[in-house]
């Protein structure tokens, strides 16, 4: 088997990793914001429920969560299994939304009270204060920790192979079982390249936000 054929198949399967990455972000970024609002709610029971949920999700391995979401319905109530990739994405979205929610919460709570009060005395509504005053300041503050999460996320996508989703690590392990070991190691290049692009992107974003201080 030629190297170019192998690289093509690795590239193709890395597409699955990228797919998990982007789908997770698409849903987990807004869901995380909703969860963070829940964890800051003035209604204590809601806050307790949300905090317990976040504790459970952050306190258990993502690999286990993938297994539970994929096999759970069948084992518990004889339900239909989700398609493998869907199950992986659901687990990733829930898991990452919980991490994002804590980052958002940190960002939101770090905005001084005075910013809200200044908006209030100027007759702004709550949503105007959020969107026109605090949001951009929160975004500026969460960019560095988010950069970390994004990098962890692309590498975590390799966990999808635990339920036999054919992503890049799974593919390269198939070559390994046939006695070809270098494809497995070469997968590092794909992740390195991806993280390199992320690093540049986040560096650019931070620079973009450099015109003001919070």
């Amino acid at each position: 088997m030629s190297a170019s054929v192998i690289f093509t198949s690795l590239t193709k399967t890395f597409g699955i990793n990228c797919q998990i990455f982007f789908v997770t972000l698409l849903f987990a970024l807004p869901l995380g914001l909703i969860i963070s609002f829940g964890s800051m709610s003035r209604f204590a029971p809601l806050r307790a429920i949300v905090k317990t949920f976040v504790w459970i999700i952050r306190g258990t391995p993502l690999m286990l969560q993938i297994i539970v979401i994929f096999y759970g319905p069948g084992l518990l109530w004889d339900g239909d299994l989700l398609p493998r990739l869907t199950a992986v994405c659901v687990a990733f979205i829930i898991n990452y939304a919980c991490y994002f929610s804590e980052i958002y919460r940190g960002g939101i709570q770090s905005i001084p009270r005075g910013q809200y009060e200044a908006g209030q005395v100027l007759g702004m509504t709550k949503s105007q204060i959020f969107f026109k005053v605090t949001l951009l300041q929160v975004i500026k503050r969460v960019i560095p920790p988010m950069g970390n999460e994004f990098m962890t996320l692309i590498k975590d996508t390799a966990l999808a192979n635990v339920i036999a989703t054919k992503e890049i690590i799974m593919m390269s392990k198939e070559y390994a079982t046939k006695g070809l070991i270098w494809p497995l190691f070469s997968t590092a290049l794909f992740f390195l390249l991806f993280c390199g692009i992320l690093t540049l992107l986040f560096g650019w974003l931070e620079k973009k936000m450099d015109y003001f201080r919070v």
Binding site: G114, Q115, E117, A118, L136, F212, V214
Partner: peptide
Amino acid sequence: FQSFNLFPQ
């Protein structure tokens, strides 16, 4: 306000 509370952005 004592601490100005201008909007930094």
